[in-house]
């Protein structure tokens, strides 16, 4: 091959790499612009604030209040991460500080498999196990009656789904803490648990925030598994034993149907835009938190 053609190939390869990068960077922006343009019809009729603070959802009458969906999403997401985060932190500490190296080596692929399972499988598991468990055991324990298709069911299923994701990050976080830090703490007379509590957790704090924040962002967008167990009732939930109707479920259940209703598709696009915005916001906030706490170490 001539020098010229080799150089040419070199250049073309570089060209395509840069193009791919630009596409990657433009994707979210184009996505946001597209969603925004599509939701203009509904935004022109009503103010954005009004739309997200109204809880009346009657598309036939032209009433589009997004509050039930937004609150359902927030409930399910935060509850799931509140369940998942402590489990992940304790597991990561156990695997990196107490277990033998072999155990961690064994757990890594297991966690990857769990993270890679299709979400519909978690949904089915939720319908078969979690929903009946809530309706037959948990709710009666609190003296309540429900079908089991609740915010709580959604949160439990979702927490199981985000655990491998958060856990993977946390294992990495704890593994990268230098051993010398542990030794420094032990050598002034601290016990192992004191070292974990006062030194390792503190050192891992930015990583824990970031893992949790990314977990929130991921949980927020999860669709299928949640919509299978959460009940899909349009109502602002007032307890974890209420049914809910998260944003992704709204879009997935309705897009492509009933589009003859005026502004309906525009409303769904706005739902997608809100979802997109909130996920971005959580990503942004968790990154800010990391930067701030890293500065303070």
């Amino acid at each position: 091959m001539s020098v010229f053609s080799r150089k040419f190939r070199d250049k073309t390869a570089l060209f395509w790499m840069i193009i791919s990068l630009v596409i990657l960077l433009l994707m979210p922006i184009l996505l946001a612009i597209g969603l925004y343009l599509k939701s203009l019809p509904i935004l022109n009729g009503q103010s954005f604030w009004e739309l997200i603070s109204e809880s009346d959802w009657k598309p036939m009458q032209g009433k589009f209040g997004f509050l039930p969906f937004i609150t359902s999403s927030l409930w399910v997401t935060f509850l799931s991460v509140i369940i998942a985060a402590p489990v992940c932190i304790l597991t990561a500490i156990y695997l990196t500080q107490y277990a033998r190296k072999k155990v961690l080596a064994f757990m890594h692929p297991v966690i990857d498999i769990l993270a890679g399972l299709p979400s519909v499988i978690y949904g089915v598991w939720g319908v078969l196990i979690v929903v009946p468990f809530i309706s037959k055991t948990v709710a009666p324990f609190f003296g309540l009656q429900t079908s089991g298709y609740t915010i709580l069911a959604g949160a439990i299923v979702l927490s199981i789904m985000v655990i491998p994701f958060i856990l993977n990050i946390l294992i990495e976080v704890f593994r990268t803490i230098p051993e010398e830090l542990t030794e420094a703490s032990l050598s002034v007379g601290a016990t192992k648990w004191e070292t974990i509590k006062y030194v390792l957790l503190k050192k891992a704090y930015p990583g824990i925030i970031s893992a949790t924040g990314l977990g929130v962002a991921r949980a927020f967008g999860e669709t299928i598994a949640v919509l299978m167990v959460v009940g899909n009732v349009v109502k602002v939930p007032s307890s974890i034993f209420d049914s809910g109707y998260p944003l992704p479920a709204l879009i997935a259940n309705n897009y492509g149907e009933m589009l003859s209703i005026p502004k309906y598709d525009s409303a769904l696009m706005l739902a997608a835009l809100i979802l997109f915005g909130i996920v971005l916001l959580f990503n942004f906030l968790s990154r800010m938190a990391i930067i701030r706490s890293e500065k303070n170490q």
């Binding site: 830090l181 030794e183 420094a184 030194v199 704090y205």
Partner: peptide, 12 residues
């Protein structure tokens, strides 16, 4: 008292 190869101040 222990002094390591590189200083490892505690995160505080």
């Amino acid at each position: 008292g222990l002094l390591a190869q590189r200083p490892y101040p505690l995160p505080m």
